[in-house]
Nucleic acid binder design. Structure first.
Lengths: 206, 206
DNA sequence: CTGTCGGTCCACCGAACGGTGGAGGCGTGA
DNA sequence: TCACGCCTCCACCGTTCGGTGGACCGACAG
């Protein structure tokens, strides 16, 4: 029996999911929550196997909740169920440790199969989500800049030369160059201009 | 006699302004409004010469109202009177066609002189506002890249070197350099990386 | 305690870039 | 008709950048 916790800020959605899983004899909805913090609590308390998590919620959002839950209860599988499949939603969720990512237009049948797969530790992704992911994997080192690297990139975007960025961060020019090389590798580019462009596309820069 | 309409969402402010202008024998407050849409209506209906416009208001804000009013009644002078002088407030207001921009800490005397100036078609700006404006004017052509320049900037953002961009556009490398120089001038930057950053900030790039 | 990761730093080199000051052609609108 | 904006192109020069292949340190996890 798979113990499921549903986390979504809309009571309607929670009701719909409860109904859906009422038809499955191997899945039982043991708890519900209206925001991330509550979801973590319920999942831990009720010994959930799988958590169905919405992303956009008031208070603690789904990404933060997923990360926190993975930290505290690594055995719990988090399956994202949301309306949005933009890159800026998908990537942080996966990074945070979600095992799957479905869209709310999924059929009840798909949903149940996904929950069973998640319980077994397998990943299920909506097709459009797969695309985004492929795009990331193609770039080795996958898009996660360190804090320092983000600082450097921001300075470069603001017009700093390597020398100026070094002065701003109180480090040597050589370090700036090293950071930039790492940034180029991670973003899959070859110069500062396109690194800045990638930074904006991935919402790393403001 | 200068016919003035006051647009501000705070009744207190409107009252203060009415008092202020009661002492001027060449200015008469013919109407008031609490938001932009109402302000446009009043200004047109009452044949205003000058409109004193707040920027931050519920409903239609001052910038939108200024633009709409300039569109419908080009003879009406819009004088911004607000608390804020940040670049993000000032520039849109000026662009929208405001003839002057004062801050609410202006003295009554200054205010009246500004209204008279506006009625004559002259511009009066608060000192700090002038600074912002200079910063923009210093960049000639201000922010309007030509189609060709946008193409070049897009290519650079996508990682092209000057040589590659030249090949892509079937022109010489020298032309790319010239375009880039123009782009730097217009955007107020000194290198391709920050040009790309500005491009994203101004939504010229995708 | 031994990898691994993040951050710092070094040297060298060729290539690319940015700055400057031009110039000519072409179309549009005053 | 003439000025203006836009696009194209040229030469020269110093500076900066990007590429490579290292190196050391501290922190943290396995």
């Amino acid at each position: 029996m798979i113990r499921l916790v549903v986390v979504d800020d809309h009571p309607i959605v929670r009701g719909g999911l409860r109904d859906t899983f009422a038809n499955a004899e191997d899945i039982v909805v043991v708890g519900e929550a209206g925001d991330g913090a509550e979801g973590i609590e319920r999942a831990e308390l009720l010994a959930a196997d799988v958590v169905l998590m919405d992303l956009r919620m008031p208070g603690m959002d789904g990404v933060a909740a997923t990360a926190a839950l993975r930290e505290r209860c690594p055995s719990v599988r988090v399956l994202i169920l949301t309306t949005f499949d933009s890159e800026s939603d998908v990537l942080p969720a996966i990074e945070a440790g979600a095992i799957g990512y479905l869209l709310k237009d999924a059929l009840p049948d798909e949903l149940m199969r996904a929950v069973r797969a998640a319980a077994r530790g397998e990943s299920v992704l909506a097709p459009s989500v797969t695309q985004h992911l492929m795009g990331q994997v193609r770039r080795p080192g996958a898009g996660t800049l360190t804090d320092r690297e983000k600082e450097v990139l921001q300075l470069v975007a603001n017009g700093s030369s390597n020398r100026e960025a070094a002065a701003a961060l109180f480090i040597g020019e050589a370090s700036i160059k090293t950071h930039l090389q790492h940034i180029y590798d991670k973003l899959g580019v070859r110069d500062r201009a396109s690194a800045v462009a990638e930074g904006y596309r991935r919402r790393l820069l403001t």
